[in-house]
Design a binder for these strands. Structure first.
Lengths: 299, 299
DNA sequence: TAAATAGTGTCTTTGAGACACTATCGT
DNA sequence: ACGATAGTGTCTCAAAGACACTATTTA
């Protein structure tokens, strides 16, 4: 490897160039991460016979400073120049939940100029999925301002307009976040335009009740991604405890997909993703159910 | 709406807070966009009877400065604080291809600390798909340093190691970029670790011949995304001219998916995505083929 | 024994895969 | 006529949907 080092127009080698490199002082955006931490929780039923209801939950933090003082936001923080984005995300996740080593996935990077009224902030959103039973320290115990909210989303309007060479599909989706103390809600407009064969999508917040920044858009995006991925990956098992019944698993699918599934077909479909154990549920007001675990070793 | 404005711990209203807000002088990363601009091109066959070969092409730019002087990189540039990330991406796309209004999609944001030797740079990658026939001005005509490369990718090794509570799946993928003048090539290692029910993936460059930065990873990611999306969306029609034959469409599918498809099944499957026209191909050395167009108005 | 959930059997429908077959052009 | 591609018909097999049916627990 005795080749003459390459030099640029100024006659500098790469080494020399890097030594004298001046990053300059043009303005730079700040970069943050925002975390969408989901889990599944159970709500006890009044009827001893019935199974406890399950719900999808999202962790939010009440803002103690301007802007959006008093409103709820996704946990997040700045990415330092000395850490990777993913490290920043894991750090935020850990400070909120005290758990490391859980499923996490980058979703989307939000870069509108005016998304933060203080200054230019670009935010990279991550989704994390936690099995509630491994949340030893309930998030929010240390920080009095963090809380889990039940997430629900609903298509409230869908309209189609014919265009010159295509059409425009507008959907209004209401997202509601709810717990014992607080109810938050907002509406996202999702526009899909097809013209010629170019397809574009654009989302915007139509209405937002108590939710900071563009975080409603992030939630909408995350829910969509979760829905999509649940159908063709095993991502859902990150939300399940180590042992679970097939009915429980089916209910979690139903919550995420927003539709009911037929038990027989469901069982056939997931048969090779799970392994049965010798254990059964106890003290149900009805026939006990076999417990299963995730089978990651299949083809 | 006569409520008293909220004040923070310092007694400031949001308006007052924003007026006095000082963004501070901690270090910030630079943010760039990198564009993966794909198109499909034809190569004439020597045999007059045979159809011309199709290939997936990617636009690259030869670097005229350090670092990676002389190597090839994805077109891209800095995101200014006065434009959104998407605006920056469209701007880059336009300066490279002279086309506006084509399909574009954000892929992933790359945030490793050392990915640029000059300074901390976070890069948001976008994929754009162009129908070659609408590329009036061939990209690279103005910039002598831009060129299209045929992309091919190949799984060269796949191994599985059993772990305590799971397994590790390692794949080596070779990506080759080729045109009349130049051949570039590199190998990406893709590791998927499953432990408990936590699944993680990590990619790294094992070998890179003439490709700058971490752009090989971006290519690998984009190809994977393209493959995935082709199966469950109509994204592929962005690569097709307004009129095309079903055989052409099938070939583009085959190139992207990297496998052969059976004509009968293929035609049944895409039947409702296309509309037949009254036109036919001419001067083929064989039976002429009906031309179709994309049918965006189906259910 | 009734209410509730757990779990199975089977018929139908749908779609993918395989492959043979027919059709039609240019030289 | 031949080489190449265009395009169709049909059999098989696998998976999804529908739904009736059986099984098992506790108050």
């Amino acid at each position: 490897m005795n080749k003459r080092p390459l030099t640029d127009a100024q006659g500098l080698t790469e080494e020399q160039f890097l030594q004298t490199y001046d990053a300059g002082e043009y303005e730079r955006p700040s970069v943050t991460v925002d975390m969408l931490i989901f889990t599944v929780m159970e709500r006890e039923q009044d009827n001893y016979r019935k199974l406890s209801d399950k719900s999808l939950q999202l962790l939010l933090i009440q803002r103690g400073q301007h802007p959006y003082l008093g409103q709820w936001a996704l946990p997040g923080g700045f990415v330092s120049v000395h850490e990777s984005i993913e490290e920043a995300a894991r750090r935020e996740l850990f400070t909120e939940t005290n758990i490391d080593n859980i499923y996490m996935e980058q979703l989307y990077t939000w870069g509108e100029v005016e998304r933060d009224p203080r200054m230019r902030v670009i935010s990279c959103s991550y989704m994390a999925l936690v099995d509630r039973t491994t949340l030893h320290v309930q998030a929010g115990d240390d920080a009095a301002d963090a809380a889990w909210f039940e997430v629900s989303h609903q298509l409230i309007e869908s309209s189609r307009k014919e265009l010159e060479q295509g059409y425009e599909l507008v959907k209004l989706i209401r997202i509601t976040l709810q717990n014992e103390q607080t109810t938050l809600s907002g509406v996202v407009e999702h526009v899909e335009t097809v013209q010629g064969h170019v397809r574009k999508t654009h989302s915007r917040i139509v209405e937002s009740e108590g939710l900071a920044f563009d975080h409603l858009l992030m939630m909408q995006y995350a829910i969509e991604r979760l829905r999509g991925k649940v159908e063709y990956t095993d991502i859902i098992f990150n939300l399940m405890p180590p042992l679970f019944t097939l009915s429980e698993l089916q209910r979690v699918y139903e919550i995420i997909l927003g539709k009911e599934l037929l038990a027989a077909a469901f069982r056939r479909k997931i048969a090779d993703r799970v392994t049965e154990t010798e254990e059964y549920t106890k003290d149900a007001g009805h026939r006990p159910s076999k417990l299963y675990r995730y089978n990651m070793n299949r083809e």
